[in-house]
């Protein structure tokens, strides 16, 4: 029985694989998929996908060359390419400056780089313990800086009073 031993050639083998050593799947530039994608590992899309993507708690990345039109559910989502559709993320959504995004985002945290081409509806899940800064704080800071007041220019609401 022949037993194949590992050689240097094996290590150097450039044969492409859709699954990297780090456990993520890459949909390459020349690949187009229409339909539903479900997975339990990170996914990087550099090609074209149309349909739905469900990755549970895993990370979806739409690469700079990626074109996606889909309903997305994932742990985290990073958008650097074109994405049209709705994102529901367990944790965060990052939109980079090269992104072209059109759709809805529901997540706990969202970051958007300056220059991103975005038209979106954003709903951030509010953590119950996180309080919004009370508006009164700003008034206190005004009062502590005498001599640096702004000048009320027009006050239509006060007219006639």
């Amino acid at each position: 029985m022949l037993k194949r031993t590992r050689s240097e050639n094996d290590v150097m083998d450039p044969a492409p694989s859709p699954v990297s050593a780090t456990g993520k799947t890459i949909i390459g530039k020349q690949v187009a998929i229409e339909g539903g994608i479900q997975g339990s590992e990170d996914l990087v899309i550099d090609g074209t996908v149309r349909g739905s993507i469900e990755l549970e708690k895993f990370h979806l990345t739409v690469g700079p060359k990626g074109k996606v039109e889909a309903e997305i559910r994932a742990g985290n989502v990073t958008v650097s390419g074109q994405l049209k559709g709705n994102i529901k993320a367990l944790d965060r959504v990052d939109i980079t400056k090269d992104a072209d995004f059109n759709g809805e985002i529901k997540a706990k945290r969202i970051s958007v780089e300056d220059g991103a081409y975005v038209k979106a509806v954003i709903e951030v899940e509010r953590e119950s313990q996180k309080k919004v800064e009370p508006v009164g704080k700003a008034i206190d800071s005004f009062a502590s800086a005498p001599g640096k007041e702004s000048i009320p220019l027009v006050s239509e609401g006060d007219k006639g009073k």
Binding site: I110, V112, A116, Y117, V118, K119, A120, V121, I122, E123, V124, R126, K130, V132
Partner: peptide, 16 residues
């Protein structure tokens, strides 16, 4: 600004 507004509204629409 998105962070500031999204904490204060139900739905924040952004269209640059």
């Amino acid at each position: 600004t998105i962070a500031f507004l999204s904490r204060r509204v139900k739905r924040l629409y952004v269209c640059d």
